[in-house]
Protein backbone atom coordinates (compact mmCIF):
# COMPACT_ATOMS: atom_id res chain seq x y z
CA UNK A 1 0.00 0.00 0.00
CA UNK A 2 2.98 2.28 0.10
CA UNK A 3 3.65 2.37 -3.62
CA UNK A 4 6.15 5.00 -4.58
CA UNK A 5 3.93 6.40 -7.35
CA UNK A 6 0.26 7.29 -7.39
CA UNK A 7 -1.73 6.90 -10.62
CA UNK A 8 -3.93 9.92 -11.06
CA UNK A 9 -5.40 9.37 -14.49
CA UNK A 10 -4.77 9.29 -18.22
CA UNK A 11 -2.43 11.87 -19.69
CA UNK A 12 -4.89 12.87 -22.43
CA UNK A 13 -6.93 14.58 -19.74
CA UNK A 14 -4.30 17.30 -19.57
CA UNK A 15 -4.70 20.03 -22.19
CA UNK A 16 -1.51 20.99 -24.03
CA UNK A 17 -0.12 24.29 -22.70
CA UNK A 18 -2.51 23.97 -19.81
CA UNK A 19 -2.91 22.60 -16.33
CA UNK A 20 -5.23 20.62 -14.08
CA UNK A 21 -5.50 20.58 -10.32
CA UNK A 22 -5.15 17.75 -7.85
CA UNK A 23 -6.41 18.50 -4.35
CA UNK A 24 -4.77 16.54 -1.55
CA UNK A 25 -6.98 16.03 1.44
CA UNK A 26 -5.24 17.52 4.44
CA UNK A 27 -2.34 18.70 2.26
CA UNK A 28 -1.47 21.22 -0.43
CA UNK A 29 -3.30 21.24 -3.76
CA UNK A 30 -1.06 20.21 -6.65
CA UNK A 31 -1.07 21.70 -10.15
CA UNK A 32 -0.10 19.42 -13.05
CA UNK A 33 1.10 21.14 -16.20
CA UNK A 34 1.56 20.00 -19.77
CA UNK A 35 3.89 21.86 -22.10
CA UNK A 36 3.61 22.29 -25.87
CA UNK A 37 5.68 19.21 -26.60
CA UNK A 38 3.78 17.04 -24.17
CA UNK A 39 6.12 17.04 -21.15
CA UNK A 40 4.36 16.95 -17.80
CA UNK A 41 5.37 18.74 -14.59
CA UNK A 42 3.80 19.19 -11.16
CA UNK A 43 4.12 21.92 -8.55
CA UNK A 44 2.30 22.81 -5.38
CA UNK A 45 -0.51 25.04 -6.69
CA UNK A 46 0.64 28.11 -4.78
CA UNK A 47 2.69 30.96 -6.16
CA UNK A 48 5.67 31.81 -3.92
CA UNK A 49 4.60 35.47 -4.13
CA UNK A 50 1.07 35.69 -2.71
CA UNK A 51 -0.18 32.16 -3.22
CA UNK A 52 -1.81 32.71 -6.62
CA UNK A 53 -3.14 29.49 -8.20
CA UNK A 54 -0.40 28.64 -10.70
CA UNK A 55 -2.72 26.18 -12.44
CA UNK A 56 -4.55 29.17 -13.89
CA UNK A 57 -1.50 30.83 -15.41
CA UNK A 58 -0.24 30.90 -18.99
CA UNK A 59 2.23 28.08 -19.70
CA UNK A 60 5.24 28.89 -21.87
CA UNK A 61 8.16 26.64 -22.63
CA UNK A 62 8.86 25.25 -19.20
CA UNK A 63 7.53 28.15 -17.19
CA UNK A 64 4.14 29.27 -15.95
CA UNK A 65 3.19 32.91 -15.50
CA UNK A 66 1.17 33.39 -12.32
CA UNK A 67 -2.29 34.79 -13.01
CA UNK A 68 -2.20 37.27 -10.15
CA UNK A 69 0.91 39.40 -10.60
CA UNK A 70 2.73 37.79 -13.51
CA UNK A 71 5.65 36.21 -11.69
CA UNK A 72 7.25 33.57 -13.86
CA UNK A 73 7.84 30.24 -12.14
CA UNK A 74 10.01 27.44 -13.52
CA UNK A 75 8.10 24.19 -13.91
CA UNK A 76 11.38 22.32 -13.56
CA UNK A 77 12.74 23.80 -10.34
CA UNK A 78 9.72 25.62 -8.91
CA UNK A 79 11.82 28.75 -8.62
CA UNK A 80 10.73 32.25 -9.51
CA UNK A 81 12.62 33.51 -12.56
CA UNK A 82 14.01 36.91 -13.40
CA UNK A 83 14.07 39.57 -10.71
CA UNK A 84 11.72 37.73 -8.38
CA UNK A 85 12.77 35.40 -5.61
CA UNK A 86 10.91 32.49 -4.13
CA UNK A 87 10.37 28.82 -4.65
CA UNK A 88 7.46 26.43 -4.67
CA UNK A 89 7.85 22.67 -4.07
CA UNK A 90 8.20 20.47 -7.16
CA UNK A 91 6.36 17.15 -7.14
CA UNK A 92 7.97 14.30 -9.12
CA UNK A 93 5.69 13.20 -11.94
CA UNK A 94 6.10 10.76 -14.82
CA UNK A 95 4.09 9.22 -17.61
CA UNK A 96 3.89 5.49 -17.95
CA UNK A 97 1.69 3.73 -20.47
CA UNK A 98 -0.35 6.87 -20.99
CA UNK A 99 -1.03 7.30 -17.25
CA UNK A 100 0.15 10.15 -15.07
CA UNK A 101 2.05 8.95 -12.01
CA UNK A 102 2.86 11.30 -9.20
CA UNK A 103 5.48 10.85 -6.48
CA UNK A 104 3.68 9.71 -3.39
CA UNK A 105 6.03 11.03 -0.74
CA UNK A 106 6.19 14.56 -2.16
CA UNK A 107 2.44 14.67 -2.86
CA UNK A 108 1.64 13.70 0.70
CA UNK A 109 4.28 15.91 2.29
CA UNK A 110 2.69 17.61 5.23
CA UNK A 111 -0.25 15.22 5.43
CA UNK A 112 -0.54 13.37 8.68
Amino acid sequence: MNAEWLDIGPVDQLPALGARTLPVQGGEEIAIFRTANGSVYALVNKCPHKHGPLSQGIVHDTTVTCPLHNWRISLITGEALGEDEGCVPVIPVKIDGGRILIGRAAALAGVM
Partner: peptide, 18 residues
Protein backbone atom coordinates in the same frame (compact mmCIF):
# COMPACT_ATOMS: atom_id res chain seq x y z
CA UNK B 1 -15.18 21.03 -18.89
CA UNK B 2 -11.58 20.21 -17.99
CA UNK B 3 -10.98 23.86 -17.09
CA UNK B 4 -13.32 23.51 -14.16
CA UNK B 5 -12.65 20.03 -12.85
CA UNK B 6 -9.84 18.56 -10.84
CA UNK B 7 -8.09 15.76 -12.68
CA UNK B 8 -8.30 13.58 -9.57
CA UNK B 9 -8.13 13.90 -5.82
CA UNK B 10 -5.70 12.43 -3.35
CA UNK B 11 -7.13 11.19 -0.10
CA UNK B 12 -4.18 9.80 1.80
CA UNK B 13 -3.98 6.03 1.19
CA UNK B 14 -6.79 6.07 -1.40
CA UNK B 15 -6.76 7.60 -4.84
CA UNK B 16 -9.90 8.51 -6.73
CA UNK B 17 -9.61 8.73 -10.49
CA UNK B 18 -10.48 11.81 -12.52
Amino acid sequence: AHLHQHIAEIRPFAVVGG
